[in-house]
Amino acid sequence: MREISAQQITEAVKRLCIHTNCHLSGDIKSRIAQCREQETWPQAKEILERIIENYQIADEQDQPVCQDTGAACVFLKIGQEVHVTGDITDAVNEGVRQGYSEGYLRKSVVRDPLRRVNTGDNTPAFIYYDLVPGDQIEITLAPKGFGSENMSQIKMLRPSDGLQGVKDFVLQAVEDAGPNPCPPIVVGVGIGGTFDKAAYLSKRALLRSVEERNADPFYAELEEELLSAINALGIGPQGFGGRTTALAVNIETLPTHIAGLPVAVNINCHVTRHKTEVL
């Protein structure tokens, strides 16, 4: 057994909180720059220029790209041959606490959904635990803003709704969201599994680079087709009209029940943040 201390996990989570919130990943930046080149509508182009200027300031000044520094969503892949000395959940939460405090990040979590008192340190994190072979721990942090989270949808389609039903639902979700989630957006789609797994898949889809298509050519083609259809809606950056409504559509799938076709759409804004560290 390889030992990894709770302290190492805390340190990694803290680093990830500060870094992801201040520095967008290269794939998002190059896609936004590419969209600016392709955009034909003057106001849309100008907004994309401001968006680029914003992430450049954030990079240079180590400042949060967006004031909604999100709910801390943490995806752990824990090797079966790792022994963690200490409580792994506490270690992650401590990393969030330290990262959000020392990084001057916004504390955006309330303790109870109805009584709504801020926890003051952005904990608890929303953690997914996966057991995998090996002796390492992979930690992915994805701070998730709620302007876009609130525009996400899930539906239990009938198998007879088929491919067309999935396309219609994804397009309708983007149409319903309109200007609210800060377009240009990244669209995470989860198809299959159970009610909860479809939602999980749609969130996990947002962790994939916007430049990487689904490994299955059938779904890779569907991603491209949906992206074209979304960018023909005309919503545009910030909803003021234009071509650039979405930067990418990422689809993840799972086997499902003979009676079901669950589909979830998790929408993210142009400030799509995620980073991985391996211990």
Binding site: R50, R106, N118, G147, C182
Partner: peptide
């Protein structure tokens, strides 16, 4: 422009809490 918090902050020259400090952000 949503998602441009770093850029927009440069136009804010002064900020002071005038009510409900307990609400934090």
């Amino acid at each position: 422009i949503g998602g441009c918090g770093a850029l927009l902050s440069k136009c804010i020259k002064k900020a002071e809490v005038v009510a409900y400090e307990d609400l934090g952000a």
